[in-house]
Structures are given as structure tokens and as C-alpha cells.
Nucleic acid binder design. Structure first.
Lengths: 195, 195, 195, 195
DNA sequence: TATGAATGAGCCTTCATTCAT
DNA sequence: CATGAATGAAGGCTCATTCAT
């Protein structure tokens, strides 16, 4: 794999191109599955020669990791910011869930890949980072939920929330009846019992 | 592929063996992924010669379909029975959700495979039956939910319920803190607002 | 392989059955090709279990040899008889060619198999007998031709005659315009210039 | 399969290589039979990796078709030219038969394969072109024969001619007693009775 | 950086043959 | 003699990866 350029102009171009490739790969993987999508198909979709993919990713698996990173990193960054704001736990929770749902519907393909390739993510050294990111995010949401509405069944509610939000990727359609924000608020209504 | 035997004694043995193979395959696919599990690995796991698998399934994909059938058929059958009972919608909904959660945790591997191979299930002629079964089940739950607790956001609640129950396969561990029944009731508490 | 029975009644039944199987195999091989016809297909066609074939033939190749034998042995036997008759060479040649053409059209499938599997026949120890039979027959025809109409180009005429007669299997249809006898006489008209 | 290159230099190299591969395959198939020759054997013979064959042919059967095309196309092209010349039918027939015999002995392997795989050629959609080419050629020869020497048994003579010429592939050896031209003329002597 | 032909290990599937019943 | 499930070696084909240009 060619190294990432150091000169800023080239580097930016490289980074933008790489991001674009990751997004395209997410779409392809979501549609046909990771294993059933060939590197040559990917390259063709992206108007690239087969070998050129290897300038950006040392192998197919690293491309998959890149998809997960592209999904998790901005989500985690912005959620952390919200988590550290001064607002009440309940307000921060609402902000996080809105962000989260918006992120999910904007990265539907990433989410679907993320779910489909669960078995890969769950084992293997190179997936450590992705696993850590997910855990961190879940803990962040869990903490906010616990503090926003303490209850015996806090854990079950967290798990339910994770389930419904992640599942959103499977049914959400742009221009549907509900906006991401409405969806997020709807979920919160279910999870937060006290008024 | 050898045909299913017609003599009852042989046929029963055949059916039991086939069911066992499907269960084993579900486990393997859930762990390593469908594409990354080879037919020879499967055969070895099941103490079978490679070719013997093809006495039961005409190909790898049909084995995957069989997993989905083994998951959906009994669930759909028993849920339909409940749906036609005389009890109130709310009671029937509770019964269905309890059945459903119990089924999910008892078929965790099947569920994980079902989710991982979403992209295969969603396209292709031979998957029509599986898609129909899922749709039927979802409609059944949706109807009960609507009648148990009419509300503006019935659809979102259904989708939330689907998300949380299905997601259960990813975190449930036997001998955990919560029994399937408690989980089911917990979910119902979230979804049914009017007490 | 079970041995050929010794008791006459059983032995005859066995032989008749075996002959029938060989004929059926010839048909199947002629249609789908030797390698592309499976032993299980053969067995099914003959209303037999797969394993039963091995009571009659120790393996697939021996079945192929049996087809060649069923083709060559009666032809060679009757041609030899004719060759030793007292008639003139020309009359004997005519008799042999008529026999030959009649045999070819009656064993079209055998002939087609014989031609298709030329490469197998031409090498391998177990094919020695078949090769010898063909050579013997060709020599017999060649001798008669030479003596019926001596000429410089006797060899080429023999080869031409072999070509046209064998080729007959590829176009002859029962109830066609020409009877086997007419065909044979037509061939002789071409090959015998004098007279 | 990689596409045929468009740049002239590369395309020529590709075409030459492909032709070479087809010729080699014809040799191998003629010797060991189509089904008994593996793609890996072929590749090894041609100093190629297994997968490289698939840059030139999408599958084994297409390779077989290519052999038939390599046999029939130039023959048909040149025979058509001759058929449209101004010479007498008899002269044109002689020219075509000489061409034909020369072609057969120069493509012995192709011919043997063509005959051995008759059953494949005769059925299947992708063989339509090959069947058409054969029919066209046979009709061309038949027309010339009919006009060169009208007779009641024209059809039988055509079939005899087809038989002998095609059969030539099975006995001709380079540096044998007869040149292709002598063989062709010998065949014509048999088939043309008058003059 | 980009290309795309070439590599070759590996997988799904087939099928001749065996053998317990 | 008959059965037919089981065996397991082998073949056609794919595809992630490399590298000469």
C-alpha cells in the first residue's frame, strides 16, 4: 500500500478520495454482502482499476474496518461532546439519541454492514478498536439513561433502546412519514417512563 | 440429492438427522459467518463426509434457507394459534411476545444468522417463502399491538418492538439476570403506555 | 461384483439382463456422452438401485467395454463366416458390407459411443481386445476389397469405405428414404470401379 | 473473464495467445478426451496459472466451442470464396474438397474433438453457431456435388463424401504415402462416376 | 499513483464406488 | 441379488492479492 501523502494538498485529496471509497464500499457491502462483493466489483463501481484499491487499503478486511470507523468515530466524538455539556442528564440523553438516530439513518449502509458482519467484529485483534468504540458509546448512553431515569430495569431499557435505534437502519426510508428527530423522540417516550 | 425416504421409520430418522444438521449449521454460521464457513468444515463438525451433506440439502444456500425455516415455521404456527384465541388483544399480545422472546433466546444462532444474511434474504426467488413468513409474523404482532393499545404512533412502537426483541439474540445469555419471560414483560411495559 | 451364476436358468436370466443393461447404457452414452452420464442416472433409467449395476459390471469403464463388445463380437463372428464362404470375393464383399451397414444402423448408439470414446479405446490395457477386434474386422474387409477389385489405391478405398459406413450411424434414420441394403449397395458402387 | 483489450497492440497479443491456447486445448482434448482433461492440466501444459485460462474463456465449454470455431470459420470462409468463383461446378468441387482435406489433416485434433463431442454440439443453445456452420458447409458441398454430377443418389454420395473426408482425421499421418491433395483427388474419383 | 493481467490457493459440488442391511 | 446412504477424492471456477509496466 502506498503511504498516505504528507504534502497537505495531496493528503487532503487522498483523504477525500478514501472517504468516498469507504462510502461506496459500504453501499456495496450492504447490498450484496461483504463476502459476496469482490474487490474487482468494488473497483469497477468506483471507476478504479483493481489494484488501485490497494493504494488506499492494505486488504479487504481493512476496508471493512474503515467502514466501521467512518460510522463510529464521528458519532462517538459528537456524543462525547454532548455528554460533557452542562445540561441535565435527560436533556443530554435526548440530544444524544437524536444525534444517534440521525447518524443511523444517514449511515444506513454502514449500519447494515456493521450488523451483518457482527461475527467478524467480535473476534480478531484488528477489530479491537471497533469493539472499544461500540462499548464506549453504549456505556455513554447507558450512563445518561441511568441518570436521566433511575430504575430497576435500567439495563433492559438500555438494551431495548440499542435494539430499536439500530433496527432503524432496516426500515427507515428518506421521505418517510417520520423524521429522524420524531423517531428519536418516539423512542425516548418509550424508554423514559416518568414524564 | 437423495430423496427424502418414504418409509415412515426411515423418514423419521432422516427428518431428525436433517433437523440436527440445520441446528449445527446455524451455530457454525452464527460464529464464523455464512460465507466463511465451508461445507467441509460443516461436514466435519457433524461427523459426516463432505458429500453426505448433499443428501439433505441440494446446496449451501438451501441449508441457509432451512435455518430460516426452522426459525420461522414453529414461531409462526404457535403465534397464529395464539392470535386466534379468545382472550383480549392485550393478553394475546403478551402471550405472543413471551413466546417470541423465548423463541429468540432459544434460537439465538438462527436469529443471528437471520440478521447477518439479511441481504440474501431480501433478494432472490428462493427466499420468497422466508420473506413472506417474516411479513406475516410482523403483521400479526402489529395487529395485536394496534388493538391492544391504539395510538398515533402504533407503527413506530411496532418497529421499536421488533428492534428490541430481535436484538435480544445479541446480548441474551442463559443464566443471566433476566428470564425470557421477564424480558418479554419488560418490553411490553415499554411499548404499552396505558397501564 | 457378484459372479455370473453357474446354474443355467439363473445364468440365462443374468445374461439377458446384462445385455439389456448394456443396450440401455449405449443409448444413454450416445445421448449425453460417457463422462457426463452418471452411474446413478444409468441405474435410475434401468429401474435399478445404484449399487446393483456393480453386480453386472465391476466399474464404469467395463460397462463401456461391454458396449464395444456387444457391437463388435456378433459383427466379427458373422463377417468371419461370410469371409470363409465359397462365393467370389466380390459376392462375399457385398455380403459383408450389407451385414456391416445393417449392423451399424441397428447399433447406432453403440457406434456413436464407439466413435466418441475413440481416445479411451486407443490406449489402455483393458482395451486391447476391442482394438484387436476392430483391426481384425478392418483387415477382413480390406482383404476382400483387395481381391474383389485389385487397384493401386486399394488402401485409400478401404479407408473411404470405413469412413462412409461408420459415418452412417450419424445420419441414418429408420423409415428414411434408403434401406440399409440400398445404402450398402450404394457404397459398393462407389468403391468398386470396375464392373 | 477479463475483456478483450481494445488497444491494437494488446489486442493482437491477446488474440494470438488465445488462438495458441485453443490449439493446445484441441491437442489435449483429442488425446485424453474433453471431460478427462482438467483445466489445471491444460493450464500447466500451456505454462499458465489455472485462473489465467479464465481470462480467455469464461468456462471450459466455451473453450470447446472456440475449438470448433477455429476449425469451422476459416474453412467456411475459404470454401465460400471458392463456391462463388467462376469455374465450372466440377472444378469448384475439386477445389473445395482439396481445401477441405487439407484443412482436416491440418486440424486433425480439432476434427477428432469435433467428432468426439458430437453429443454436446448437437444440443444446447450455445452450440447453435457451430451447428449452423456445419450445416452451411455441408450444403455448400452438396450443391456443388449435385451440379457437378447430377444423379439419383446424390444425397448418398454427399453423405459418403462427408464420411470419408471426416474419417481422414483418424488415419492420416504426416509423411504418409499420400498427400492431402492425392487423398482429395482419390475421394473425388470415387464420388464422381462420370468422366 | 494507476493499471489490469496474472497468480494460485481454496471452495462448492459431483460422482464412482462401497457396504451394512 | 438388491438397496441406497455414505464416502471422499477431484474438478471447475472464483477472487484477494501482487507486480511489471
Amino acid at each position: 500500500m502506498a503511504a498516505r501523502p504528507t504534502r497537505p494538498a495531496l493528503r487532503d485529496r487522498y483523504d477525500r478520495r478514501r472517504d468516498e471509497l469507504v462510502r461506496n464500499a459500504a453501499r456495496a457491502f450492504a447490498r450484496r454482502g461483504y463476502d459476496q462483493t469482490t474487490m474487482q466489483e468494488l473497483a469497477a463501481t468506483m471507476d478504479l482499476a483493481t489494484g488501485a484499491l490497494y493504494h488506499y487499503f492494505p486488504g479487504k478486511e481493512r476496508l471493512l474496518i474503515a467502514i466501521c470507523d467512518q460510522l463510529m468515530e464521528p458519532l462517538l466524538a459528537r456524543a462525547s461532546e454532548i455528554g460533557e455539556q452542562e445540561a441535565s442528564p435527560r436533556e443530554r440523553l435526548r440530544a444524544v439519541v437524536r444525534l444517534w438516530v440521525a447518524h443511523v439513518v444517514e449511515h444506513r449502509d454502514h449500519m447494515l454492514v456493521f450488523q451483518q458482519e457482527r461475527h467478524q467484529i467480535e473476534s480478531g485483534e484488528e477489530w479491537r478498536g471497533v469493539r472499544a468504540a461500540r462499548k464506549t458509546f453504549e456505556r455513554l448512553v447507558g450512563d445518561l439513561l441511568e441518570r436521566a431515569d433511575p430504575a430497576d430495569d435500567a439495563r433492559l431499557r438500555l438494551l431495548a433502546l440499542l435494539g430499536m435505534v439500530n433496527h432503524t437502519a432496516q426500515w427507515y426510508r428518506p421521505r418517510g412519514a417520520l423524521s429522524p428527530r420524531q423517531i428519536a423522540d418516539g423512542y425516548l417516550d418509550l424508554v423514559l417512563r416518568t414524564g
